[in-house]
Nucleic acid binder design. Structure first.
Lengths: 146, 146
DNA sequence: ACGTGTTGTAACAAGAAGTGTTACGATCGG
DNA sequence: CCGATCGTAACACTTCTTGTTACAACACGT
C-alpha cells in the first residue's frame, strides 16, 4: 500500500461529480461520493478539502449542503489535482548529509536534484494532458460496448 | 521520509565505484562505499544486492573481496538502476474495488491505469537520458570552480 | 428559533515501507 | 586455519496512508 492512491480518489470523485452535474445534480454530499469510491466519507472530505484549498471545488455546510465543482470538467487537468494534493517529489536525496570529504558525496546532490526535477517535470507534462472531462468521457466510452 | 532515497543511494554508490575504478581501485567493500554515503554497510549491501540481481555489479566474498562494476559507467543509465531497484508505480489505483454499480466506479480503472502508465513512461524516458558517467562527470565538474 | 443534516477536524488504530542497527552464518584468500 | 567480507535475518524506529469513531460548528427549512 506504499504508492499513493490519493490521486485516484480525487480524480474519481471529480469525475463522479462531473457526471452528476451533467445530470442536473450540482451538489453532492461526501457520503454520496464515498459510496462510489466504496470508502469512508471522511476520506472524501479530506481529499476534497485539499482540492477546495486549491479552488477546484467548493463546499457548503448545513442542511442540504455538499460539494460542487467550480469549473467545467474540461478546465480541470489531472496535473492540477495532483498539485492540489500537495505533490511530493518522486525521488528523495540522501536521508542524511553524505560524506562531504568524498568528491562524490560533496558534489552529487545538485546533480541528482536536476535529474529528479527533470523527471518530475516529465510527469507534470503528462498529467497536464488529461482533464477530468477526458477521464470521464473515456470511462463512459468503455461501457458503451456490451 | 516518504519518498524513496534508494535511487539516490544506488546512483551515488555506482558513481563512487566508477571514480574509484578510474583511479585503479576495481574492488570496493561495502564499508568503503558506506563511508561515502555516511550510512550503514548493510544499507549498501542491500542496495547493491538488487543491482547485482540485475547484472549491473558483481560481488565476491572472502578476504579481499568486495563489489565491482560489470560495465563501463557510460553504459549504465539511471533508468536501469531505477528498474533494478524494483521500480514501483508512481500512483496506485483504489485500495479496494470501487462501487461497480456506479458508472464511474465501473469504468475508471482502465482509464487511470493508462494515464499512470503514460506518466511512468515519461519518467523512464527522462531517467534513460542520464548515465552513471554523466552523473559522475557533472559531479566532478561542479567542484572545479573554487 | 429549533431540529436536522452535513461539513470540518481531531484522535486513534492498523498496516506498509524505508532506514538503520546488531548479529551471525557462509565463503574465500592467504 | 584465520581473518575479512559478504549475505541475510531480526528488530526498532519513524513516517505515511487508509480507515474509523466522535463531536463541534454550521446553515437551511419549517
Amino acid at each position: 500500500m506504499a504508492a499513493n492512491s490519493r490521486l485516484t480518489t480525487a480524480v474519481h470523485a471529480l469525475a463522479w461529480m462531473a457526471l452528476a452535474s451533467r445530470r442536473g445534480r450540482e451538489v453532492m454530499t461526501s457520503e454520496e461520493i464515498a459510496a462510489s469510491l466504496a470508502t469512508n466519507p471522511v476520506i472524501v472530505r479530506r481529499s476534497l478539502g485539499e482540492l477546495r484549498a486549491a479552488g477546484l471545488v467548493v463546499s457548503r455546510r448545513g442542511a442540504g449542503a455538499g460539494w460542487s465543482l467550480t469549473r467545467e470538467p474540461a478546465a480541470i487537468t489531472v496535473l492540477e489535482v495532483h498539485e492540489a494534493l500537495g505533490a511530493e517529489p518522486l525521488f528523495a536525496l540522501h536521508p542524511g548529509t553524505p560524506n562531504l570529504e568524498c568528491p562524490v558525496g560533496q558534489g552529487i546532490r545538485p546533480v541528482l536534484t536536476e535529474v529528479y526535477a527533470a523527471a518530475d517535470a516529465a510527469v507534470r507534462r503528462e498529467l497536464a494532458g488529461h482533464t477530468i472531462a477526458d477521464v470521464l468521457a473515456q470511462t463512459l466510452a468503455s461501457q458503451e460496448t456490451p
